[in-house]
Every structure is written in structure tokens, then in C-alpha cells.
Design a protein around this nucleic acid. Structure first.
Lengths: 117, 117
DNA sequence: TCGTTGTTTAGGAAATTTGCTAAATATCGA
DNA sequence: TCGATATTTAGCAAATTTCCTAAACAACGA
């Protein structure tokens, strides 16, 4: 009988955000550069309104942040947050001795734990 | 205009599987040991039928595998698959120069790429 | 073989997600 | 200030997810 984490916990929001391939693709675009909402929307066969909604979900999950500059609103990844969330998860869910687990453990050792779980 | 990956692609199934906190918790339980369906269900305030459904989603995503031994059906994590899926994702979606990214790149260098993307 | 235990499948209701169009808000440039 | 451009918010329909109960299936032990 585990008491499950409430829905609003950071970890939950992150994984819900990552469940959509559209949102994962947006994150991939933002891994190289920042882009404004229109530039992002132009890369999908979907209305701007829908992309805007996806962006707000990514933002609520703490994975991206936005900044208005003049007429445009630019989006960029929040550094570390995605890594930290995945790291926290891998910590609990990956079998011991697996590569990513070992790497994450090493990472944890070094400090800099923001603990997104 | 990106052509999004079809829904049945491994990566998509993995992230859909991870979107549920129940399923992530199951993975966490299975990281230490294998458990039969009843033992897993006993840890949640939820019907056995529902847990069975969650298990089948995890199995369809390739994250766990099951084996009947007599009266019981045992579940265990499929080694590497979770790590590989996350690794593939991090590869595309995490900003360059971030810790996990560098670690993953090093991992990729070593070969053993199953490429779950 | 029968009854019991372990697990899944079937069917359905409630909640959530996803996409759309239309309308609202914000900024720019003339 | 007006009109055009950029983006979000509102409201809604369709699809999906999640959980439940009841029934079916599988294996054990007497």
C-alpha cells in the first residue's frame, strides 16, 4: 500500500509532459537553440493554439521557460531540470549495476542535487 | 513540419508507460527483485485487475517481462531497456554540455547501442 | 474431479487529454 | 491611434486513460 505522490509533484508533471511525442520533439528543438512560439509552431502540422498549449504544459513541468522580447515570446529549455528529473527517476527505478544507474550515482556523489523527485 | 513518430514506436510506448505514477512505482519495486502479480497488487490500494492492466502496459513497452512459475506469474524488469530508452531520448532532447548528456555520449561511444528510438 | 487461489479479460463509467476554431490580449510600425 | 502580426485563452467535441466489478482462465492440492 504505497501512498502515491500527488499529481502536482514535479516528477509527475515532468513525466506527463514527456508522454507526448509533440512535446518531446519540442524539447529536442529547444536543445540546440531558443525559438519563439511561431517558429516552433511552424515545425508542426498543428494549430498555433495547440502548440501554445503544449508549451504551457512543458513550462508548468519546469522543463522550459519563456521570455517576451518585443512582439515575440521566446522559449528555451530550463537547464538541468530534465536531467535532474530523469536522474531522480533512474535512481529509484533502474536495476543496480546498469550503466545509466552507475553514471547517475556518480553524478549524485558530486553534489549539485536539486532533487526533483 | 516534422513527421511525428507513429504511436506504436518503442520510444512512445516507453514514455506513455512512464507517465503513470503507479507504473513508475511498480518499476521501482521491480528494480530490486522480481515479484509476482499478487505481491505487486498488494502494495497498492487498487484492484488486482487494474494492476494487471498496468503490468501489461509496462510489458508492451518492453520495460518488464513475465514468466509463469506454477500458480504465480512473476514480473521483472527487462534489463537495459529503460536505460536505453532514456538514453536515446536524452541524446535528442538534452542541451549539449549537460552532465547526463556527456555521460550518455560516453556510453554511446562504447558501443552496445540497441537504439530504442 | 472439485474447490480454492492467482491472474487476466471483458465491458462500462468517469476523468483526462488533445486538437480545433473563435475570440481576446499584446506589441509593433505607420 | 489604427491595422497587422504574434501569441494565448475559452469553449467544445473526440479520443484515450483509468479505474471498477464480474466473469473467464490456469494451476494447485485433496
Amino acid at each position: 500500500m504505497v501512498s502515491l505522490a500527488p499529481k502536482y509533484r514535479p516528477m509527475q508533471r515532468v513525466f506527463e509532459a514527456l508522454a507526448s511525442s509533440v512535446r518531446r520533439q519540442i524539447l529536442a528543438y529547444l536543445s540546440h537553440t531558443e525559438l519563439n512560439a511561431g517558429e516552433i509552431a511552424a515545425r508542426f502540422a498543428m494549430s498555433k493554439a495547440s502548440i501554445s498549449q503544449h508549451l504551457s504544459i512543458l513550462e508548468a513541468a519546469g522543463l522550459v521557460e519563456s521570455e517576451r522580447r518585443g512582439q515575440f515570446i521566446f522559449y528555451r529549455q530550463v537547464p538541468d531540470n530534465l536531467v535532474n528529473a530523469l536522474h531522480g527517476f533512474v535512481q529509484e527505478a533502474c536495476p543496480k549495476g546498469r550503466p545509466l544507474k552507475r553514471e547517475s550515482a556518480a553524478l549524485a556523489e558530486k553534489g549539485s542535487r536539486t532533487d526533483n523527485r
